[in-house]
């Protein structure tokens, strides 16, 4: 039974995401190609136009490789299902879910993650093919994708905890937008995090966001040893444990305030 509803939610989420196939395709292309082009342009400006030979110890080709490989993982980290949770609280739709014999936070996650799993599969295939041409290791790509999927869970947990502010202020949209912007910069999606000046490196190191894109990319490119990788997987699991506790706490408090009025 437990597995059955989860599989049903996964199937439902996948059907929902692909109901409008053209939109789905546009979304993937738009969210992949344009950010990659922007990154590439920055490296082009620094190296080809600016004449730099190395930036923070990285060559032009190092940065190009980073851009292409990080693109595969940045497609996995996303998902707007935390926004869905906030909207359910705000509108009172949450009541419908409370009547069901399933955990609402997990249900929304599973339904929302379906499309990401599909994308992760595509990206992994692409990554393994890319690895053959660029001389990376295929198994490393699989490990990196595993870390990216752990990152996806952490990302949702942070969003689900933030969404509970909707119990207090009705509206959590802005807070979730702020979270997305911060994640955008601190996950390594915009630029490699080792470009941060040494005095500012603590900023990204003290959040779990680097595990979403930067970490998987570092491992896939061979910049992290296997030991480092397994340490980071351990750290990710600790963050997941903390996230779970955070969700229990915030949702427990939030449900005490919930009025189910909507509007």
């Amino acid at each position: 039974m437990k597995l059955q509803w989860r599989l049903a939610a996964l199937k439902n989420g996948f059907q929902d995401a692909t109901a409008y196939r053209v939109e789905f395709l546009f979304e993937i292309l738009g969210s992949a190609l344009v950010p990659a082009a922007i990154q590439w342009v920055l490296w082009y400006a620094l190296f080809q136009l600016g004449g730099a030979t190395q930036v923070a110890g990285m060559s032009y080709m190092d940065l190009i490789h980073y851009t292409f490989v990080s693109l595969l993982f940045s497609q996995v980290r996303g998902g707007d299902h935390d926004f869905e949770l906030a909207e359910m609280i705000r509108s009172g739709q949450l009541s419908n879910y409370l009547l069901r014999p399933v955990g609402v936070v997990e249900f929304v996650y599973i339904r929302g993650v379906a499309s990401r799993l599909f994308i992760a599969g595509l990206c992994l295939t692409l990554g393994v093919i890319l690895a053959q041409f660029l001389g990376f290791s295929g198994p490393r790509m699989i490990g990196a994708m595993f870390l990216a999927l752990l990152g996806n869970i952490i990302h949702y947990q942070v969003g689900a905890a933030l969404a509970t502010t909707a119990f207090l202020w009705e509206e959590a949209y802005s807070l979730l937008m702020v979270k997305n912007m911060v994640v955008n910069l601190l996950s390594g999606e915009l630029i490699p995090l080792n470009l941060f000046p040494p005095s500012l490196q603590w900023i990204w190191k003290s959040t779990p966001f680097y595990l979403f894109v930067f970490g998987p990319t570092q491992y896939a490119l061979g910049h992290w040893s296997h030991t480092e990788f397994f340490t980071q997987v351990g750290i990710a699991l600790v963050w997941i444990g903390l996230g779970r506790a955070l969700i229990r706490g915030t949702w427990g408090l939030g449900m005490k305030r919930y009025l189910s009025l909507g509007g």
Binding site: L42, L49, G50, A52, M181, P197, L200
Partner: peptide, 21 residues
């Protein structure tokens, strides 16, 4: 925050170079 992210991005890049194009 959005403005902060945009400014931070350039601040990080300019921490590594004098001019961009």
């Amino acid at each position: 925050i959005w403005m902060g992210v945009e400014v931070s991005l350039f601040s990080i890049l300019y921490a590594n170079t004098q001019t961009i194009a």
